[in-house]
Amino acid sequence: MNLLTKSALVVAMLGLAACTDPGRFGGSADGAGGFGAAGLGSASDPASPAYFQEAIGDRVWFAVDQSTLSDSAVVTLDGQAGWLNTNTDYSILIEGHADEQGTREYNLALGARRASAVQEYLISRGVSPNRVRTVSYGKERPIEICSEESCYAQNRRAVTVVGTGAGS
């Protein structure tokens, strides 16, 4: 069948999501207490949140029901820690998310576990704990909306949102 067309479509959708996601789910939209999303700046400026988001990667993904960090997640988080240790004016809000295969409140707890796993790792890499907060949205904020594993895999994530507000 037309596998090629289908995968091209998926890539295109991901691209779109990556562009729209931070604006909608960052601190500005949901107004996490005292945490304002930073202006993104230009991705070509290594000190900009846009660079953090696009060049380093603002999110990591998890296996079904898991909150352990994969090898590729660790690579991304090492990059995040390096950037945060250089750009110390910023604080971060780590959002934990789950896919829709679970009940609401359990998934809220699962998302918190994921956010916490990222938080602990970043702290272990030298990021000051008082610059980091976590929140879980459970299954409430999917970025991909199909009911298949290809979407679920994108939704089981922890997103590091760079902001200007006070950390602790």
């Binding site: 909150s67 409140e105 809220l108 707890a109 918190a112 576990r113 916490s116 602990e120 976590t134």
Partner: peptide, 22 residues
Amino acid sequence: FAPRFAPDGTSVVYSLEQGGNT
């Protein structure tokens, strides 16, 4: 999250998450 009243209405049972543990 996950709050519910006790049957006498004077207290609440709920989940509290801290450091990833609920």
